[in-house]
Design a protein around this nucleic acid. Structure first.
Lengths: 127, 127
DNA sequence: CCCGGCACTCACCTTTTGGTAAGTACCCCA
DNA sequence: TGGGGTACTTACCAAAAGGTGAGTGCCGGG
């Protein structure tokens, strides 16, 4: 009830976006698909380390959110193609600055965290 | 070993950035501080719903990553000011497009998810 | 004199997230 | 005949993230 200490408007935009793109593998999936449509098995091989369960789960969520399109080809061995929708492409674009930021500052962050992890390196921590 | 099915370069930029800004309240904290320095209690009131534990934990991580600055004023009632560093400001900028995207498409996403949540609205789901 | 606010810290618990491993149904190839 | 590839589903588990509530020391106000 105070005079307004802080801005509360907006706020949630980030939550919304991270709810869509915030899974462990979603960025990778989006990125892989921004290179062109891929089949399920292709994606699995691209995202080395991902389990089938997580890959499908994330793909289902991305499909529900209409950022990826799933197309089933009725064929002898099952064949499913995943691709970015136009909407998905806007998300990838919105993600890019953040990705660039991370790429640009990765080494700085690593250094800073390493330094923070060991309390007494050699010099006395002045304070 | 294949001819290269997909791009694996980069990738991690997003992971790095989300590791810094990806907590439940970090976006809110960053946003609140981008409006100007705040005291601990002020932040707590701004981010209604946050527990003290999470607020401190996130602030400590942001401080370690050098995106926020913590300044203790030796005073009769303890007084601590938190502010964005210049580095933190670059992160806020990188976050903005994503926040804008979320704000812009929130209602679309809500609609799509509501529709996906109820399998049979009125029409028989053919299949 | 006790209560509340300041800025925390700590122990414990629940929820969410991600991972493992197995099974399904079908087909081709050796 | 059976092993591998296709695209999944399911049950169970572990780890991480987040939340609750209490305690700390010091002070001013009612």
């Amino acid at each position: 009830m105070a005079v307004r200490e802080c801005r509360t408007t907006f706020v949630s935009g980030l939550d919304v976006a991270l709810d869509v793109a915030g899974g462990k593998w979603k960025g990778l999936i989006l990125w892989a698909l921004s290179d062109g449509p891929k089949r399920f098995g292709q994606l699995r091989r691209c995202l080395s380390g991902v389990s089938e369960k997580m890959l499908i789960q994330h793909l289902r969520e991305l499909e529900r959110d209409e950022v990826v399109h799933r197309e089933v080809h009725q064929a002898v061995p099952p064949r499913v193609d995943y691709s970015l929708t136009a909407f998905g492409a806007t998300l990838v674009e919105a993600l890019r600055p953040l990705s660039d930021w991370g790429t640009e500052h990765r080494s700085r962050l690593e250094a800073v965290r390493t330094a923070a992890a060991r309390p007494a390196p050699g010099k006395t921590a002045a304070l």
